[in-house]
Design a protein around this nucleic acid. Structure first.
Lengths: 233, 233
DNA sequence: CTATTTTTGTGCCGTAGAACATAAAACACA
DNA sequence: TGTGTTTTATGTTCTACGGCACAAAAATAG
C-alpha cells in the first residue's frame, strides 16, 4: 500500500488549518511521528474494534465511514473529502473504533499519533475549539440523518443522498455531474435501502428528468424538485 | 414557571464537575448571569429555530430532546438526567436549535449565558476537553442509534429503548422497575414506531414474561432475553 | 481474447408495520 | 358526580419495501 510517498514535510501547507493553531513546539510534537500513506480504491483504513491510535487527515481522494447493522446491511455514516480530519471521535470518547473506514478511490492520508494529539488538545484551547466545532456539527448532522432515514420514504432518502453527495464532493465543470461515481450499492448504503430499490428509484428519477444517468455518472438536472422530494419525504 | 427558586449559589456543589475545571475568574464570569428555573412536567424548554443563548444544566427532574420528522412523527434523540448539561451543541456548531427540549417531569435547570461559556471554552483547554469528551460520546451514540433504528425490527427497537431507559434513569429499589414512567407514545417516539405498535409489542413482551407492566410502571424481568432480542434485531 | 466475477436492471411475491377505526380505561376538573 | 379528554388496548386493512430469482451488461482476471 505504500509507494513513492511524498514526505510529511511536502504536505505541510495542506495541514495548515490545524497546524496553524499550534505553537512551534506543539507543531513539532505532532509531526515528529506523522506518516503519509496511500490507500488504494476499496482498501480498508481501519476496522471496528481497532484502537484509534492515529488521527487521520485525508489529503487527496475520497473516504467513507461505515457501520454494519444486524441484518449485515451497511450504513455509510459519513463521507470524507480532502482536506478533512477523521478517525478521532472514539479516541476523544475513550472508545475503540465502532465503524470502519474505506477508500472510495485512491487516497493519500497523513496519520498523526493520537496520544500526541490528545496531549496537545488538552493544553491548547484553540485546537480544542477546532474539534469542538467539528464534533458539534457532525452530531447535528447525525441526529438529522437519523430522523430522515427513519421517517422519509425511499424517494426522499435517495434525493437526500444525491443532494448530500453534491454538497460533499461537488460537481464537475458542467455544473451538473456529481464528482463522485458511486455504485448503486453505495447509493443504497447511504440512503438505507436495498440495492434493487436504489436502482429502481434512480431509474424512476431519470424517467422523470430529475437526473440523467450514464453508468455511474449522475447528473442532477432538477435540484429544486429533488429538494422538494427530500422535504416532503 | 418560576416559584421559590433556590439561588445559583445554593446549587454550586452540583455544578462542581464543570466549575471545578475553572479558575476563580472564569468561575465568576460564568456564574454572574446564571439563573435557576423550574419547568413543570411537559413544559417546553427551547424550540427549533431559537438561538442557543444558554448552556443548560439539569439539576433535578428529567428532560427529553426531540426532533419532529416529515410525517409529523417525533423522534426522541436524547434524554437528560441530573446532573447533566444540554442545549450547547448548536452554539458550538454556530447554528440555532434544530430540536426542542421538554421536561418529562418537573425539573430544575440552571441556565448560563452561552457567549460567556464560549469565551471561557476558547481559553480553557480543560473545559474544552470536558465538552470534546461529551460530544464525541454523543456522536458515537447517535451513529449507533441510526443503524439500530433503521435496521432492527420492532421488537429489537423496543428492547433497545427499555434497556436504554434502564441505563439512563436506572431502576427503583426493587432493582427491576424503571425509574421513569413513560407514556406508550414516548416509548414509541424513542423506538421509532407508532403508538399502537409500542402498545402491542410491550404487551407481547409482558405475555412472554420479559417485562411486567402496571400502567406506566414497567419492570424489566429478563434483561438477558431483552439484550438478546436487541442483538438479533 | 476468453472466462469469471461483479454490477445493473426487472419482475414477482411476501410481510412488517403503518393507517385507520373503535372501544374501554384512566384521568382531569368543574 | 358527571363530562370531556387523553391514554391504552385490540382488530382490520393496506402498502411500501425487502427478499429472491434471473438475465443482461460491464468490469476484471487470467
Amino acid at each position: 500500500m505504500t509507494r513513492r510517498l511524498p514526505t510529511v514535510k511536502d504536505l505541510l501547507p495542506k495541514l495548515s488549518d490545524l497546524l496553524g493553531l499550534l505553537t512551534m513546539d506543539e507543531h513539532e510534537q505532532l509531526l515528529k511521528d506523522a506518516s503519509v500513506h496511500v490507500f488504494r480504491k476499496n482498501e480498508l483504513i481501519y476496522n471496528p474494534g481497532d484502537k484509534p491510535t492515529h488521527l487521520h487527515c485525508l489529503l487527496s481522494g475520497k473516504v467513507k465511514i461505515c457501520k454494519d447493522g444486524v441484518g449485515g446491511r451497511t450504513q455509510i455514516v459519513r463521507v470524507i473529502r480532502p482536506v478533512e480530519y477523521f478517525g478521532y471521535r472514539p479516541a476523544f470518547a475513550g472508545e475503540n473504533y465502532v465503524s470502519y473506514a474505506l477508500a472510495f478511490e485512491n487516497s493519500t492520508i497523513v496519520r498523526i499519533p493520537m496520544d500526541e494529539v490528545i496531549k496537545v488538545v488538552k493544553g491548547n484551547a484553540r485546537l480544542s475549539w477546532f474539534f469542538i466545532n467539528r464534533l458539534a456539527t457532525d452530531l447535528g448532522r447525525a441526529d438529522e440523518r437519523t430522523v430522515s432515514l427513519t421517517q422519509k420514504h425511499i424517494r426522499g432518502r435517495l434525493a437526500d443522498a444525491l443532494l448530500f453527495l453534491k454538497e460533499s464532493y461537488g460537481v464537475e465543470e458542467d455544473g451538473f455531474t456529481l464528482s463522485i461515481y458511486l455504485s448503486r450499492e453505495d447509493l443504497a448504503n447511504l440512503s438505507n435501502m436495498t440495492t434493487s430499490n436504489a436502482i429502481r428509484t434512480l431509474s424512476a428519477f431519470a424517467a422523470e428528468r430529475l437526473v440523467a444517468v450514464d453508468g455511474r455518472k449522475v447528473k442532477l438536472l432538477d435540484i429544486a424538485k429533488l429538494e422538494k422530494i427530500s422535504r416532503i419525504g
